[in-house]
Each structure stands twice: as C-alpha cells, then as structure tokens.
Design a protein around this nucleic acid. Structure first.
Length: 353
DNA sequence: AAGTCGGGGAC
DNA sequence: GTCCCAGACTT
C-alpha cells in the first residue's frame, strides 16, 4: 500500500483515493498567485521562499486574494527579505499596511520578522512556527507545509467548508471544526503536503464556494455526503451572528500651514499603532462631546464605516489651526498622509478635499 | 467560551 | 441589507 493510502486509512476506507483525486485536479487547475511556485516546480524540488510564504499567509488572514495581492507586491518590493523588514521603521510598516485592516497583524509582523532575523533562520516545524507572534494554528500549518514541505495541515475557512460538506456536518460547529481538523490531518499525504494544502484552498475558492458550489465539476463529488443529500450550500452550519451596535463620534480636519493634524494612535486596541485624525470617543449613546482644544469647527458632512463588531457614524468637521497643536499631534501633508491612514479616516479626509 | 480586531467584494 | 474571506489574540 502506498504511503498516501496508508495515511488516509487511519480515517477509514471511506476516504480512500480522495487525496490523489484532489492532487490530480490541482495539477490541472492550480491558481497562479504571486507568492506561489507552480505545481510542476515543486515536483522538481523547487521550494518557495519562506519569507514570501509567511508574508502572504499573514496578509491573507480574513482577507481576500485580490485585496492582499497589491500589498504583497508593495511589501516585497520595499522589503525583499525578512532581514530588510526586520530593519524597517515601525511607522513605515504601519503606513504600508494602511487599508488592509486587522492592524495587530502588522504589529506582530514586525515582531516576528525581528525574532526570525535575530534567530538567523525560520523554525521549520509547525510547533516551532506556532511560537512566533501572529502565527496561529492555521498559519503554522500552512507555512510548515508550503515552505518546508512538512506533513502539516492548513485548515482555513475554505477547508472547513469543503469538509463540512464532505461530512454533511450537522453537529455543533465548534465540535465539527475539531473533527474536520483531525480528519484533514490524517489525509495529508506524506510526500506532497504543500500541494495538498494549496489544492484544498483552491477547491474551496473556485468550486466548493459558499453560495453556489459547482458540484458538477468537483473532483471530490464521489466522497461528498452533502452533494449526495442534494443541498451542499446548507453547509457549513455556523451559529448566527450578533447584530452590530451603532456608535457615534466626531472627527476633525485641522488644517495648518504644512498640512493636517494627525496623531499616532495607542499601540493597543482599535487601529492601534496607526496614524489617525483627531477624533472624539466613539460611543453608542452619542454623548461623545467635542475635542476641547478645537474651536469654531464647521461640520461638512458624515462618514459611515463598518468595523467588525460595531458600525460607526462620524460627523466630519473642518477648522483652520492657529496656535500650536496639543502634545501628540503633528501636521502632515494632506495629500500624502491619506495613504498612511486607516480607511475610516481616509473617508473623512476625502470628504474635506 | 466569548469578545476584540478591518476592510471590501459578491450576492 | 447578508455573508465571508489562507485567523490570532485577549480575557
């Protein structure tokens, strides 16, 4: 018995042939992406650059491929190696990440780069990678498999969906996720773990999609209980989400001789470590008041912005600055600073331009 | 176990 | 409007 079937047999004969069918499909339909090497190249012993694999995986956490792609190109052009990134200024990296969201990723990206540069090399195992900041269960498995060809599983949202359907998983989603992770771990082929991980993600992204899965061309149809039932789109069965409360506040475009006033936000919490415009608290009761050091500001409109766990409505006000700014604020050219701001502040600045 | 943390595209 | 995306971290 070949190694591949032997690995699958631990999960029972039910999944015999599944890894081979998936890899065969991947050989013909793999997506071409900037951080990948081709499936043919892996066969000739080519291994991707761990730095590029890691950087892409961090950027792709809860982020679509089209959105991350431009950032990946910019980062690798500016910082071609992990040593280059480790030597970068914090503010430059945060500015380059602006607009990509989940800014703790950027803070941990720098911490991780500096740890790896100090060590002199990347850990090559899943457990070793898991110790680095910003690398959780998924990313540790992905980097181990993709960059180091270790027998590790990379279970992301795509893989959860694909196997929720294959199993027709009807139990508590928390329990089903654990079951899926165990199963995928058993199915990873010893000789091609990297391609197996990419193949599952490609299948989830292009065929086993959330809304209208294209079962007619799916290489795993024969193993899929949800397809047999006839309504694959019913899976995965996730718990309902909470409604987002609305918060209110004000944001100010303070114009001075050399630009607009910005601050560097505290390194913890929402938009932590990013540049921001002067703003009040954001409160659900709307009683945020005004910034006391600003006088005579004129309201020019409102911006709406949706964060992960609340919706924000910000009144936008403009004012000409006269005296010195309070500690923590500085003037920046209003044209160039926009690129370094998180989206909510970009919207406000655009309204005033 | 639940909450925090961004942004945008597809529908 | 809803859903979700190559999730991790804190409490």
């Amino acid at each position: 018995m070949a190694k591949r079937e032997k690995a699958a047999s631990a999960a029972g004969a039910r999944f015999d042939g599944l890894p081979d069918a998936l890899l065969d499909w991947y050989g013909r339909h793999a997506r071409t992406l900037p951080w990948r090497i081709g499936p043919g190249e892996r066969g000739r012993g080519v291994v991707p650059d761990p730095y590029r694999v890691w950087l892409a995986e961090i950027m792709l956490q809860q982020t679509t491929v089209p959105h991350a792609a431009g950032y990946f190109e910019a980062f690798t052009r500016t910082w071609p190696t992990v040593e280059a990134l480790a030597s970068a200024e914090d503010g430059d990296v945060m500015a380059a990440w602006a607009g990509l969201g989940y800014y703790a990723r950027a803070r941990n990206l720098l911490k991780c780069a500096r740890e790896v540069a100090a060590r002199g090399s990347w850990p090559r195992t899943e457990a070793g990678l898991r110790e680095l900041p910003g690398i959780g269960p998924y990313t540790a498995g992905a980097v181990a498999a993709l960059a180091f060809n270790q027998r590790a599983a990379a279970v992301d949202g795509n893989v959860d969906r694909v196997f929720a359907r294959i199993l027709a998983a009807k139990g508590e989603w928390k329990d089903e996720k654990r079951r899926i992770a165990d199963l995928v771990g058993e199915l990873v082929p010893e000789d091609r773990p990297g391609e197996f991980a990419e193949a599952l993600m490609d299948l989830g992204a292009t065929i086993c999609t959330p809304k209208r899965p294209n079962c007619l061309i799916c290489p795993l149809r024969a193993w899929c209980a949800a397809h047999a039932e006839g309504e694959p789109e019913r899976y995965p069965m996730k718990p309902a989400k909470k409604a987002k409360p609305v918060r209110f506040g004000e944001v100010y475009i303070v114009r001075g001789a050399s630009g607009v006033a910005v601050e560097t936000r505290p390194s913890q919490g929402l938009l932590g470590g990013m540049l921001g415009l002067p703003t009040t608290e954001w409160r659900e009761d709307g009683k945020a008041g005004r910034l006391d050091w600003i006088e005579g500001a004129q309201e020019i409109g409102e911006v709406k912005h949706v964060f992960t766990h609340f919706e924000l409505r910000l009144r936008v006000l403009t004012v000409e600055s006269e005296g010195a700014l309070p500690d923590g604020y500085e003037l920046r050219d209003s044209g160039s600073v926009a690129d370094a701001l998180p989206s909510v502040f970009r919207k406000a600045l655009k309204l005033a331009s």
